[in-house]
Amino acid sequence: MAARYDLEGQLKKDIDAPVILFENVSKEYQQGTPALKNINIEIRKGEFVFIVGSSGSGKSTLIKLMLKEVKPTSGKIYVAGKQLSRLKRWNVSKYRRKLGVVFQDFRLLPDRTVFENVAFAQRVIETPTRKIQKDTPRMLALVGLSEKMKSYPKELSGGEQQRVALARALVNNPVILLADEPTGNLDPKNSWEIMRLLEEINRRGTTVVVVTHNREIVDEMQKRVITVRNGIIVSDQKGGYAYAKNQYSNI
């Protein structure tokens, strides 16, 4: 992989170290139906990766495994230098601070303003108030919502709400940004705005993993695409959804 440079023109360090590594990971839920079968994934620092697949393919389980919301039935998962199965329960919260997460349904707190929603992420990890006062407006400026700091989520459009969610996910400088269907509830225009933001965030050095089934976006952006079908990775290459789908359409 060619050396990459960040905005200041400095060489990104450790560009080749995997920040996410799945080794022979399988996951069976209690009903006994396997959600994932023998998965191997390696994602390097600074990568932008799409995980695609139809609903029920197991792609959301991948996100849940990375967040340590569920445990794998077998195999090992390393994220940001931690082997997740060795992570003690009381260290899970510290681990999760290295990840930023956004969801299809935004998951904002309806009774708090935009500012408070973003500040909440910092409050929760006990950031000093002074730093919160500085970081939160900066992050809201990045997602273009400086004007809406005092608004409540219900006063915003879907795209704006997702941008608040992004600001919240990013305010603590995560190593990895996980986005689970981030454009699922958005129209094409807003979807593209979110994707541009994700690209910008990635350009600044954060590893971005996007779970989606928005074919148009995946095709257009020409990033690495991991295709999951029935719990198996059927394709992992740079290119588009269509490419992956065509090649494995007989599976």
């Binding site: 009381w90 919260s93 999760r96 997460v101 998951r107 707190l109 992420a121 929760v124 990890i125």
Partner: peptide, 16 residues
């Protein structure tokens, strides 16, 4: 519920 699950996801400690 919603607030608490968000808190858990963004790394709030049990104490918090």
């Amino acid at each position: 519920k919603q607030e608490l699950s968000i808190m858990k996801l963004i790394g709030a400690t049990d104490f918090f």
